[in-house]
Design a protein around this nucleic acid. Structure first.
Lengths: 240, 240
DNA sequence: CGGGGGCTTGAAACTGATCAAAACGCGTGG
DNA sequence: CCACGCGTTTTGATCAGTTTCAAGCCCCCG
């Protein structure tokens, strides 16, 4: 149900009118399954449609200085290449981590509904701004924190975002990342990520096995990484 | 002339119709001068207007892990707090580096012209997307490069952006940053930034004195930092 | 059963941080 | 005009966090 994903995401992002929700329901789309490591988009592509993540996890990445750097993760409901609506040529790769499913919605259809509804324009714009805020938070994470804080912050962010779309329950969720992926996202070596995760385990802050993460003491983990969720700019559950 | 700054910036970003340009000319604004270190906006503020940088330099910053991290710089023509149109509460401080001048345009006026013109909506949205791409580039910079590459990349980015608005001529421009500011932006210590700059000087790549930077061998500097300007998504001069 | 990817461990090497102090430049007030 | 003070740049020495290299292990999949 791609419509439902998209609707509930945009609803959380910005609030939608009844009309806008039915507009979204009428969107045509093309569903697709992705295998682990499969690319949705390559740097330089000029896609004619935008993707909505239905399930799984995508990473935005690029090879920098002979190392692959991940600059963001996208979970169900996210639209990673929404910027291609206004910046036609992609400047990063988009890659599936583990298997995922996505829906592709033509640019033309999106432009159409945005013409009809300022509310939807607002919601989609806002969605891109939230992701911009996430990139900034990553700048702060990579620039200012050392290994333990970086990994902890990443986990806090992913948990919180997963919770927002109902994919984490009580700090427990499925996370298909390998330690190499974490290293690529946090700007660390795999070896050091391994030791850092062990430290987090040793402190009794998390469990992480079989691609399943559990935050044992979320408050302490947040404190260790100075995580505070305001930058995600989600509407409060009460307002949803 | 705030109108001129804004117009030529948006023109470069997206192209504007004759009508849109006159719409921009009619915007009311309030000009303001800022002293070194003066704050335009503090985290948590809910501004009712957006700022256009007229001259000087602003930094977006936040204290993380007992260190101030700069996550972006803004130069003439930029609108650093455009996101507050859709994300009302600011999540970073905005601070003048050296003395600057800005113009404040009420949110209401911007909403008005966006209602009238899809082209302007497009241009402003695109402006926010370009800055998002810059944040991503910074993630890659901080995550993947070591000191020399980081500083070199920052210089390449600033030169290129300055050139786009006519503030750099032949790799030579005024840059009010202290070495401490560079350290805060690059996630390094001042001491190490100092040694890194000396290394760049020693390699004959740059001159930097009295807040004036000159790229002596731009191509080598770009190579050293793998800089390529596509992520800035500027229209080519020919198209402007 | 074999192979390979991911995880784990150890030791050595390096990049960059920290601490401390000196030199420099510049504006202010005496 | 000089003395003072403060912020910025520079230098040296030591220390810490992280990388790199290398090897072994585990476990799942074919």
């Amino acid at each position: 149900m791609p419509h439902q994903q998209l609707i509930s995401r945009l609803q959380a992002v910005s609030g939608l009118s009844e009309q806008d929700r039915t507009r979204l329901t009428r969107l045509r789309y093309k569903a697709k399954s992705l295998a682990d490591g499969e690319y949705v988009l390559r740097q330089g592509d000029k896609p004619q449609s935008c993707i909505v993540v239905m399930s799984g996890l995508l990473s935005r990445q690029r090879v920098v200085n002979a190392r692959t750097q991940i600059s963001s993760f996208y979970i169900a409901g996210d639209m990673p290449d929404l910027p291609t609506l206004h910046l036609p040529v992609a400047d990063c790769d988009l890659c599936s981590v583990g298997s995922s499913t996505i829906a592709a919605v033509p640019h033309s259809a999106l432009r159409e509904i945005m013409n009809e509804s300022p509310g939807l324009t607002h919601a989609l714009w806002r969605e891109t701004l939230i992701h911009a805020a996430i990139y900034r938070e990553w700048v702060e994470n990579l620039g200012s924190r050392q290994a333990l804080g970086r990994v902890a912050h990443l986990l806090c962010e992913l948990t919180t975002r997963m919770e927002f779309v109902g994919l984490a329950d009580n700090g427990n969720f499925r996370l298909p990342l390998t330690q190499q992926d974490v290293a690529d996202a946090c700007g660390l070596s795999v070896v050091h990520v391994n030791r850092t995760i062990q430290e987090l385990r040793g402190l009794g802050l998390i469990e992480w096995q079989n691609h399943t993460v559990t935050l044992l003491r979320p408050e302490e983990l947040k404190a260790a990484s100075e995580f505070s969720p305001e930058y995600l700019h989600e509407l409060q559950p009460s307002a949803r």
